[in-house]
Design a protein around this nucleic acid. Sequence first.
DNA 1: CGCAGTGTTTTTGC
DNA 2: AGCAAAAACACTGC
Length: 278
Amino acid sequence: MPELPEVETIKRSLEPLILGQRIVASELLLAKALKLAGPDQLSAATSQAVISELLRRGKHLIIRLDTGYDLIFHLRMTGKLLFEPQEAELPKHTTAVFYFASQTKLVFADTRKFGTLHLVTSGDWERVSSLKGIGPEPLGADFTFDYFYAGLQRRTKIKPLLLDQTFIAGLGNIYADESLFRAGIHPERPAASLSKAEAERLYRAVRETIADGVEHRGTTVSDYLDGLGKKGTFQNLLAVYRRTGEVCPRCGRTIERIVVGGRSSHLCPGCQVKSDCD
DNA sequence: CGCAGTGTTTTTGC
DNA sequence: AGCAAAAACACTGC
């Protein structure tokens, strides 16, 4: 479940360890995970390459090489990027490995095998379908309230809209549910039915929830670990996500789970009333 | 043992 | 346009 805060934490944990490292060899164990290139191209692009920059866009982590290529990782649900000593045993479901000159390695592992690695020439991100048309970063300057409010004027429920990566980059199920709770808005509310005051509350809630998630190094509810195998701590601060049957920290009522747009959604029936004005 | 649930994105059909 | 369902998988918990 690496969403924006988790991917940002992985980036920050890896940065001091792999920036400037020289890749001396690479191994591709799950060929179908590599997109827009073949195994030979990956070898050619990474061989003797020095890592010059780490970037993040939405839920994507990008490793920039001095050979003129970008490695674009998407971890989907269970993907991990781990920095380890060269002699460490590879995890069971390893997708790819990059060996460094310093007797260390970067392991891309993924139990569910959904994670992807796109190889593109530097900056050529448009070729990656999940990056083409991606929306603004929720903590970026171009994610303004005016942009947010204008985007709400559509015939869709608010929760699926928050998860739409072309609207906002990086929100997933955890931070969408927590943002809606903080704003006191029911996930099934038609987006266009939100008043300007409610929209303002939600806009702030999205930015604050994402910022809090980053500050607490992400949420570990099952799989997520940072680049050093360390858990996040934001799970301790979740109000509703995966807390079905527990007590609402705000009003004391029982947290419920419903399905919205095919995704489980957790909410407090006291704090998030559906019939506010839809 | 079987099976529902887990979450991200893409694709397909209505 | 927007929604629903399915598919890509493996593992956990009942």
